[in-house]
Every structure is written in C-alpha cells, then in structure tokens.
C-alpha cells in the first residue's frame, strides 16, 4: 500500500521557516516567494507560524552554537514525516562562515545528531533566487 501521507504531502507542503543565523538574505527571499510574482500558494505551499503545523522545515543560515539546541528542539516539535530544506550556501555548507568560532555546523549535521533518518533538501546559492527555491522545493517533494 502506497504511503498516503506522502501523497497528500506533495500537494500541500506547509512551510515553517527557521532562521538560524543567516544574513537575512535568504529569509526575505523566502517571503518573496509568497508575493505576487512567485506566489507559491499555486502549489499549495503555505507559510505557517507554528512548527506543529509544518511539513517542511526551511532552515536558512549556518547554525550558531547558541541556536543549535533550539533548532533541534524545533525539529522535535514538527510532526513527522517532515522534510528539512537547507536554504542557501550557509545552511548547506556553512559558506563564508566556515572558519567562524561560534558556528556549530551545517544544518544537516546538526539535525542528524538527533535524527539520523531525517530527509534533507539542499538549495545552494547566496542568496538562492526565488525561482531556485521553488525548484528546490519541487525536488524535495519528489524525494519523499
């Protein structure tokens, strides 16, 4: 029996955005995706305000030590199944902050500490354009 939950998940992924220390650039481009030009509501994507409602955790920025435990906590709060989308160069690989003393690591490393089976999508770019993000999300939905 095919997993029904993923079938419907593809049709209406609700996104919760977690900023973990990015430079704001990815964050505002996420908001840009909602606005008239890109309008991701066409695909049923909706930005929600509580992780309890989320299907996709959109993480932008390198994970600083201070925010690390909070990010893990938010990941625990999300009802499964869920996808973690790493947005931007920093979230994928720490980018320019690779050598910084207060950065704990890229998002996937931090999340895998608590859930090795988490599903990840990477959207590189500094910042990724909204088009790129939409493409990344579409790919993410195909992946599950």
């Amino acid at each position: 029996m095919p997993n029904l939950s993923t079938k419907w998940l593809k049709k209406s992924p609700w996104i919760y955005h977690v900023g973990t220390g990015g430079c704001n650039n990815c964050d505002i481009e996420i908001l840009d995706c909602l606005t008239p030009r890109f309008d991701v509501e066409r695909f049923g994507i909706k930005l929600v305000v509580s992780p309890r409602h989320a299907d996709v955790l959109l993480v932008s920025g390198p994970v600083s030590y201070h925010i690390k435990s909070r990010l893990q906590e938010v990941y625990r709060q999300v009802p499964k199944p869920c996808v973690v989308a790493c947005l931007g160069a920093c979230a994928c690989s720490m980018g320019i902050f690779k050598d910084a003393y207060s950065v704990a690591g890229p998002v996937d490393k931090v999340i895998k500490e608590i859930d090795p089976n988490a599903i990840f999508v990477y959207v590189p770019g500094c910042p990724p354009k909204p088009e790129t993000m939409i493409m990344g999300l579409v790919k993410a939905l195909q992946k599950i």
């Binding site: 973990t20 220390g21 990015g22 600083s64 925010i67 910084a100 207060s102 950065v103």
Partner: peptide, 14 residues
C-alpha cells in the same frame, strides 16, 4: 540577543 552571533569581526581579521 545573540542567537546568531557568527564572529564576523574575528573572521574579518583572517
């Protein structure tokens, strides 16, 4: 504040 302190000033010295 301080959740997203990344140490840019120190990085700049390198």
């Amino acid at each position: 504040l301080g959740y997203i302190h990344k140490g840019i000033e120190l990085l700049a010295q390198q």
